[in-house]
C-alpha cells in the first residue's frame, strides 16, 4: 500500500520510494527517511493539502502526491 492509505498514527516501514521526484528523494534522504526506515503517518491538511510524517522524533511535511509515491508496509 502507499503512505496515504495508512490510517493516521500508524507505524509503517518504507518498502520503496524511488518513484519520488529526485529532489524530494534526496531531501528525505537527508532526514534519514529512505527504504527500510520506520515512519509514522501523522495526518494531513484538508483539500488534498500536504501531509506530515514523523521519523526518529523529527517531523517532515510533504505533498499528498509525493506521499502517494511512497510504498509502505505495516509493521
Amino acid at each position: 500500500m502507499v503512505l496515504t492509505e495508512v490510517p493516521r498514527g500508524k507505524r509503517v516501514v518504507i518498502k520503496q520510494c524511488s518513484q519520488l521526484h529526485p529532489l524530494i528523494y534526496r531531501r528525505l534522504n537527508d532526514f534519514g527517511i529512505n527504504e527500510g526506515k520506520e515512519i509514522f503517518y501523522k495526518g494531513k491538511m484538508p483539500f488534498g493539502g500536504p501531509c506530515f510524517i514523523a521519523c526518529k522524533s523529527q517531523k517532515v511535511s510533504i505533498r499528498h502526491c509525493d506521499a502517494q509515491c511512497i510504498e509502505v508496509e505495516a509493521l
Binding site: 529532489l23 524530494i24 531531501r27 500536504p50 517531523k59 517532515v60 511535511s61 505533498r63
Partner: peptide
C-alpha cells in the same frame, strides 16, 4: 519546472 514542497517542521 514542477512545483515541489518538502519542509522540516
Amino acid at each position: 519546472e514542477k512545483s515541489l514542497f518538502v519542509i522540516e517542521l
